[in-house]
Simulated scan of single mutants.
Amino acid sequence: MADAVFPAWRKSSFSDGGSEDQSNCVEVAVTSAAVGVRDSKSPATPALTFTPASWSRFLTNLR
Rank of each mutant, 00 (worst) to 15 (best):
A33Y: 01
A53R: 15
N61H: 10
E27M: 07
A53M: 10
D3S: 12
A34T: 08
S13C: 02
R57I: 11
T49K: 03
S12T: 11
A4F: 02
P46N: 10
T49I: 15
G17K: 14
F58S: 11
P52I: 15
C25T: 05
V5P: 08
W55T: 12
A44G: 15
S32I: 13
T45F: 00
V26C: 04
V26R: 00
T49A: 14
D21G: 10
R63C: 11
A29K: 05
K41Q: 08
V37K: 05
E27A: 13
L48P: 04
R63A: 12
V35L: 04
A33N: 13
F6E: 00
S42D: 08
R63M: 05
A47I: 05
A47V: 07
S54L: 04
E20A: 14
P46G: 07
M1V: 03
S23G: 10
K41M: 04
A33T: 15
F58D: 02
C25W: 00
W9V: 09
E27L: 04
T51A: 06
D39L: 03
W9I: 09
T45Q: 03
S54D: 06
P46W: 00
T60A: 12
K11S: 09
G36A: 05
N24C: 06
A29G: 13
S12G: 07
V26E: 00
D3E: 11
G17N: 13
A4W: 02
W9S: 10
P46S: 06
R63Y: 02
E20Q: 08
P7E: 02
S13N: 11
D21I: 15
T31I: 14
S13Q: 03
V26H: 01
A53E: 13
S40K: 08
T31Y: 01
